[in-house]
């Protein structure tokens, strides 16, 4: 226990506090020119202590101080009703639902593709290069266009955003699953052959179980990436709802605190999602009787 605290938690805390310290420094540095201008216009006396204090109290700072962001988040989550359009919980839920839907679609697609690729050599040769190429298309960059076009077809709401997320998240899953399904030792495959196991039996009793740890590793990447997809997918829908919409309205009106609070809540959401995938993977490993890796 003491060992974990000393070797794992202490360094992280040190780095985090260093980041916080730097952040406050930059807040003062970046906001001070504007503040000094205010002082000069009012021809007021000012000390450096005043400067430091006042730079952290701007309404539209160049860089808000961490405590400003936290108080904004507190104001828009706990103090607002969940159904309110100003509640961050409401916006996070909108983003979360399309993230999860896209993640589910992407996972199913990725696993299916991986099975085809592993089971059929022609598929492997013809599909694999194109799966890699598909990710060099900056889909995030054209996400707004896809949303607009799908809206024109009559698809609106959750599904278009989820499709962007699915497109992004299928790739790590497919690549990881191909690796995982191919991971069993040739000697084990030979053993199954000596049992005269059918292709299905080989797949379900050997390939699938040995791919599970690969699947969860890819799922951690995929769920984070599908959150990014959902946020970018929300940018062009006229800023109706979601964390992406908060970012866009924030940048329209120069509300930096709003932008940063949306960013921080997106970060928290990402952390929660990755952690929950991690917990599910631990539970699955336990059920399967695997050693913790």
């Amino acid at each position: 226990m003491l060992f974990t605290i000393k070797n794992k938690i202490m360094p992280i805390l040190a780095v985090l506090s260093a980041i916080g310290f730097l952040w406050y420094g930059f807040t003062i540095y970046l906001n001070s020119p504007w503040q000094i201008q205010i002082y000069e216009q009012a021809s007021a006396e000012w000390s450096y202590f005043d400067l430091a204090k006042d730079t952290m109290a701007h309404e539209r700072p160049v860089l808000p101080a961490p405590h400003q962001i936290l108080s904004e988040i507190w104001k828009t989550t706990v103090k607002k009703k969940i159904t309110s359009k100003r509640s961050l919980v409401f916006h996070s839920w909108v983003t979360l639902s399309s993230t999860l839907m896209g993640f589910l679609m992407g996972t199913i697609m990725g696993i299916t593709l991986a099975i085809f690729i592993v089971e059929n050599k022609a598929m492997d040769k013809s599909l694999m290069p194109w799966i890699i190429t598909s990710q060099t298309i900056p889909i995030l960059a054209i996400a707004p266009m896809i949303i607009v076009v799908l809206n024109a077809v009559g698809l609106s709401g959750l599904l278009p955003k989820a499709m962007i997320s699915a497109y992004l998240s299928f790739f790590p899953i497919a690549v990881g699953m191909v690796k995982g399904l191919r991971s069993p030792d040739p000697i084990l495959i030979d053993l199954m052959r000596t049992y005269s196991a059918s292709r299905f039996k080989l797949f379900f009793s050997l390939r699938l179980p040995s791919s599970v740890s690969f699947l969860f590793t890819s799922m951690k990447i995929a769920i984070a990436i599908s959150l990014v997809g959902a946020i970018v997918g929300e940018l062009p829908t006229g800023a109706v709802a979601g964390l992406g919409a908060r970012l866009l309205t924030g940048s329209y009106y120069g509300q930096t605190i709003q932008i940063w609070s949306a960013l921080i809540s997106a970060a928290t959401l990402a952390a929660l999602l990755v952690i929950s995938v991690n917990i599910i993977s631990q539970m699955t490993f336990k059920l399967m009787g695997m050693q913790k890796s």
Partner: peptide, 9 residues
């Protein structure tokens, strides 16, 4: 793992 594109604005 964060949506860093968000810092674009």
């Amino acid at each position: 793992a964060l949506p860093i594109v968000g810092i674009a604005p």
